[in-house]
Amino acid sequence: MKTVLAIAKREILSFFVSPIAYVVLTAWLLWSGISFYALAQFYASNPSHGSTDTPISIFFGGTTLFFIPLLFFVPALTMRLIAEEKRSGTIEPLMTAPVTEVAVVFGKYLASLVFWIALWFPTLMYVWLTSRYGSVDMGAVAASYVGIFGIGIYYMAIGVLMSAVAKNQIVAAMLTFMMLGLLFVFGIFSQIMVDSDYEELFTYMSVWGHMATFSRGVIDTRPIIFDVSIAAIALFFAVRVMSQRNKGAA
């Protein structure tokens, strides 16, 4: 556990002292700001629109403005985690140190979750701003953040896996984008499926369905189980990929 924390700490520090962290954060805040402002403007001109929706509840997963940027920002956050170590050759000294592949993968994964939280932390400001112009349901906001954390759990795990599989950052980013894109498309399938069983299946697997529940203030065990199980599979394969690579290198 100590080695996991040590690797995570090293990764977090190296990320936050690099300019890329702030470029990503600024770009993210610009995008989120546009999306939040557009929703606020819409609700300001249509105060009675919807039944229990507010700009905040819609901001958290109510539109594609929420999901599409994640396809770009998640690869940007995770692409360098392991792939960069391989490209720069620092993976060799790391793996010859007394640390296991599990510790490396989990350390990197823990760090990626911290990046994820750092990405969303400033959006608390939107909650505060909304509360100045109307009442905000803090329970629903808390549930939204639980949902976002759930998405982060498995999105980041996929990013770590792809970073372990790929030889360089660009390939890692593209693979992550493709995998997340596939999961995003499940959301579209759930909308176009006529058969209710398939529709339910795709809704279950899509992040759209997940956030539709959480952003309303409802905590549902189904998406949580899904998020955790995908993350577990991704991390398992990431460890095995690292392990196979080390055996190959040996």
Partner: peptide, 14 residues
């Protein structure tokens, strides 16, 4: 199993 037997908690204020 989670899909068939699930639980939900309502965190909304009202």
């Amino acid at each position: 199993l989670a899909f068939r037997n699930y639980a939900r908690w309502d965190w909304t204020a009202s």
